[in-house]
């Protein structure tokens, strides 16, 4: 260093100009750091605001000083705590609801099947497994018509297809599979746009009931044939005297056709002299029947 420069340095130190320059430089550095810190805070606040679903901060709306005082990060952090608390509460409620649904599904004495809109099996209860999937094959994700109906295209009377087409729940759809008969009910599950995401199908086996109904129908038919061909006159009458049934012998003996019966009552076929006696007998018969239950 030349002698002149060294002398200038000594003079500067003595006058305090060097310290001033150092402080100015340090101040500039601190300002830059503060600016960077505010930029970082603003970017994080904007990121959090976007998560909350709103717009970023505008510098003209909230300057750096106001931002520090408002403490948006603190506000949003507290808000997130509330959101998380609410989510936890909701999750607990949903878990309870899910447990309740699982219990109902397990205890139900009807088969319950849940399929998605693409007809793929999403869930089913033990009763449905007992009805259709006794082999224990994993059918989740399989197409309903393939594993249940054993065919590549859904059958014409497919309840799922009817629910998808009508977009409403359907009750008591008759369905038969391998000699067994079922009442099938279907209900859609829709998303918030009203689109069907899943269909719940409930299968109630009615094979025995159907067989009993068939037996009863056959018995009634046989009984009707017996009555119809009997030589005795047989009639069925309601308490108000309307005819429910009369057999052929009755119609032939009294000279009425089948079409006449609907407009006749018991009073029309009793001779006036016998009416009091017959009605008394009829009322006694009714009273006895009522007493005996």
């Amino acid at each position: 260093m030349k002698l002149g420069d060294r002398l200038r340095g000594v003079v500067d130190n003595l006058s305090g100009a060097g310290e001033t320059q150092r402080l100015v430089a340090e101040n500039e550095l601190l300002r830059e750091r503060e600016r960077q810190l505010h930029d970082y805070m603003r970017s994080k606040v904007n990121q959090l605001l976007r998560v909350m679903g709103t717009l970023p901060l505008r510098a003209e709306e909230l300057d750096d000083k106001a931002m520090r005082e408002l403490d948006p990060i603190g506000i949003i952090a507290d808000s997130f705590t509330q959101v998380l608390d609410h989510l936890n509460t909701t999750n607990e409620k949903m878990k309870l609801a899910n447990d309740e649904i699982q219990t109902i599904l397990t205890a139900a004495n009807v088969g319950i099947l849940v399929v998605d809109a693409a007809m793929k099996i999403q869930a089913f209860n033990p009763k449905l497994r007992e009805m259709f999937f006794r082999t224990g094959t994993d059918v989740l994700g399989s197409t309903c018509n393939q594993v249940l109906c054993s065919q590549d295209v859904p059958p014409e009377d497919c309840t799922f297809a009817k629910v998808m087409a009508s977009k409403i729940g359907l009750q008591r759809q008759e369905w038969a599979l391998q000699g067994r008969h079922y009442d099938v009910a279907g209900a859609p599950i829709k998303n918030r746009f009203g689109e069907i995401t899943h269909v719940v199908l409930v299968y109630n086996e009615v094979t025995e009931r159907k067989q009993m109904m068939e037996s009863l129908r056959e018995s009634e038919e046989m009984f009707r044939i017996l009555l119809e061909n009997s030589r005795d006159m047989v009639q069925g009458v309601t308490p108000d005297g309307t005819f429910l049934y009369v057999n052929r012998a009755w119609r032939q003996a009294l000279g009425y056709g089948e079409d006449d019966i609907d407009r006749l009552t018991i009073h029309d076929i009793i001779h006036p002299d016998c009416r009091e006696h017959c009605l008394g007998f009829f009322q006694n018969l009714m009273a006895t029947a009522e007493r005996e239950g």
Binding site: L49, T54, L57, E61, I75, D78, S79
Partner: peptide, 18 residues
């Protein structure tokens, strides 16, 4: 006031009165 200031004010009060 406009967003996001309106939301921040509302959130602050919701936190305060939770």
């Amino acid at each position: 006031q406009i967003c996001p200031a309106t939301l921040l004010i509302a959130l602050k009060e919701l936190n305060r009165s939770k």
